[in-house]
Design a protein around this nucleic acid. Structure first.
Length: 592
RNA sequence: CGGGGCGUGGCUCAGCUUGGCUAGAGCGCUGCGUUCGGGACGCAGAGGUCGGAGGUUCAAAUCCUCUCGCCCCGACCA
């Protein structure tokens, strides 16, 4: 493709509304255009990237025996009522929903468990038809509370979603394992560095789940990793050991201490310099929302630890959980926020304790009275130990659960998530089959998602520099950029055309910057910005049949330097072949 | 939804506090010429309902009201 023929333009400055590099760089390079919050036009170059990602996704799914299909984005709300998710999704506001001309409630699919389950229940009657895995690549709609970061969290985005159907729990696990391997292969082939982590299954529900995180400092998710043991989990889910508290001090009677203005552990440390954080107990108040009621919950936590709201939410089985607002705090404690404690709380409050407070004695805690704390408090003596569970957030440096290593916290971008759903949807929607003994049983399901458009953004978050994007070769919009310094100069015209022809004949996708009257500086800056990994410069040595080898990605293309044109062509062909070697043998190189 | 901020040529912004000339700059764009290996230079141009509506005023980008949109911080997720 000749760049001079493309709709192409670059901007010198970052757009004002782009917060992350991937968004800013793509917008500057014309890959992306925002139409409204979280809604984007994918330009020609970005679309090539997305199609390449899709091609890899398809190949790996097909190879694993999955069947591609396509379901409607437009769906009757009735189906969602049947699974029981309609209320929650509408209350959350995540579901785009409206009425058609007849007044029927409709929605735009944020995910397709309902539709696929409805489809499968009409087909499957016998265990002989199982297992089966279906998938589609399609636009999804979610009215995100806060769309942001460009392609990272859009309201309309491209997703690959797959669903497995099995006759037994073991079968479901086997399908899940198979999909896990498919996912590993996909992200490996995309040229991304990633980590598979244990995850919370959230609103989708089910028993087990893992997320695939592209390693990137700018990621929205924090991940707990243990190098020694290979443990990796989303911090929402992660467990660790915690250092035990110091031994109890000499027993003294509980008493009040004036603590004016001391609302945090930092403040209290200044007032009580000899008291370690491990002998402070925080009381954090939450408001938990259930389908039929609300409940104020107070959770005790050691002063040097933090609480994990996801663990708490799961334990309570609540729909939502949020920090209590000031009014709620005042009503529950009778004090200004910052002085909540377990003693003398309002009777309606549910009191729980994180396991970090176990063994803590003679501690400091809030007095439920403004500017007052209790000191020398003992569990068992001054108050009953509330029910104890693990509500803690893992912290950097914690020993791993088995004690054989230490936890490190890193960041990542979630590009894939796989779930064992069990029979949640099949039971709700009566997707049943007859087993060998003619007994009706619900189908065991799994679901598996990849954010295709998010993969593109994550690739840039992981691979860029000051000058621009650096695409991994397998998902780059083009394999190689041929930069012709002076379009119209005969020797350069001839050599560039010859190189492009040679590469294309070998199945390499080539972008040829043949723009006339564009200064060298601009060509180089643009080349850096769009980040095509391999580059050949046709310039001053063209008469001698030589070019400059100038890869964008030094790690991939090696050192720059002068080369005979034929040699450069050969090098590109080899690198491209190597990058595509993940393909099944016998298939031609993907041409799109 | 709660809290904070912003809407002025294609892009990045100034002007608004204290209303007053023909609404500006840089980049980009068009034409001509000189340049030509890291965002060149000169000359001549095009391009703006100042987000929208209403109001105050002799006069509104500027003040007031309403409204739409966008961004950031929090709960959600591919």
């Amino acid at each position: 493709m000749r760049l001079s023929q493309m709709l192409f333009r670059t901007l010198r400055e970052d757009p004002a509304d782009a917060e992350v590099r991937s968004h800013a760089l793509m917008a500057r390079a014309g890959f992306l255009h925002k139409l409204a919050a979280g809604i984007y036009v994918y330009g020609p170059m970005l679309w090539r990237v997305l199609r390449r990602i899709e091609a890899i996704v398809r190949e790996e799914h097909d190879r694993a025996g999955c069947q591609e299909m396509l379901m409607p984005a437009l769906q009757p709300a009735e189906l969602w009522r049947e699974s029981g998710r309609y209320e929650r999704y509408v209350t959350d506001g995540i579901l785009f929903h409206f009425q058609d001309r007849k007044g029927t409630e409709m929605c735009l699919g944020p995910t397709h468990e309902e539709v696929v389950t409805d489809f499968v229940r009409q087909f499957v009657q016998s265990h002989k038809q199982l297992p089966v895995i279906l998938y589609q690549i399609q636009t999804k709609f979610r009215d995100e509370i806060r769309p942001r970061f460009g392609l990272m969290r859009g309201r309309e985005f491209i997703m690959k979603d797959a669903y497995s159907f099995d006759a037994s729990e073991e079968g479901m696990r086997a399908s899940y394992e198979r999909m896990r391997e498919v996912y590993r292969a996909i992200f490996r082939r995309c040229g991304l560095r990633f980590t598979a982590v244990e995850a919370d299954s959230g609103a989708i529900g089910g028993s087990g789940s893992e997320e695939f995180m592209v390693d990137a400092d700018t990621g929205e998710d924090a991940i707990a990793v243990c190098r020694e043991t290979g443990y990796a989990a989303n911090v929402e889910k992660a467990v660790s050991r915690i250092e035990p508290p110091p031994p109890p001090p000499e027993e003294r009677p509980m008493h009040k201490e004036p603590t004016p203005g001391a609302r945090s552990c930092e403040d209290l440390e200044r007032l009580f310099p000899d008291l370690p954080r491990q002998r402070m107990v925080k009381t954090v108040l939450y408001r938990a929302v259930f389908p039929d009621r609300e409940q104020v919950v107070a959770v005790l936590c050691r002063g040097d630890r933090e609480l994990n709201e996801v663990k708490l939410l799961n334990h309570l089985g609540a729909l939502h959980l949020e920090l209590a607002d000031e009014k709620t705090v005042r009503a529950a404690t009778g004090a200004e926020p910052g002085f909540a404690g377990p003693i003398g709380l309002d009777g309606e409050v549910l009191l729980l304790a994180d396991r970090s407070v176990e063994g803590v004695q003679g501690f400091l805690c809030g007095g439920n009275e403004t500017d007052t704390h209790y000191l020398d408090v003992w569990f068992g003596r001054d108050l009953e130990m509330p029910p104890v569970h693990d509500f803690g957030l893992v912290q950097e440096g914690d020993p791993s659960e088995d004690g054989r290593g230490r936890i490190t916290i890193t960041r990542g971008i979630e590009v894939g998530h796989i779930f064992q759903l069990g029979t949640k949807y099949s039971e709700a929607m009566q997707a049943i089959f007859a087993d060998e003994n003619q007994k009706n049983r619900p189908i065991w399901m799994g679901c598996y998602g990849i954010g295709v458009s998010r993969v593109a953004a994550a690739a840039i978050e992981q691979n860029h520099d000051e000058a621009g994007m650096i695409w991994p070769l397998p998902i780059a919009p083009w394999d190689v950029l041929v930069v012709q310094m002076k379009a119209g100069q005969e020797a350069q015209d001839r050599l560039a055309a010859q190189i492009v022809e040679g590469l294309e004949a070998a199945g390499v996708e080539v972008l040829w910057d043949d723009r006339p009257k564009v200064s060298p500086g601009i060509k180089f800056k643009d080349a850096d910005l769009i980040g095509i990994p391999l580059r050949i410069v046709v310039g001053r040595e063209a008469e001698a049949g030589r070019v400059e080898w100038k890869p964008r990605d030094g790690a991939l293309g090696g050192a720059p330097g002068s080369l005979a044109a034929g040699e450069a062509v050969q090098r590109v062909i080899e690198l491209v072949r190597a990058a595509r070697s993940g393909q099944p043998a016998g298939e031609p190189a993907a041409a799109g």
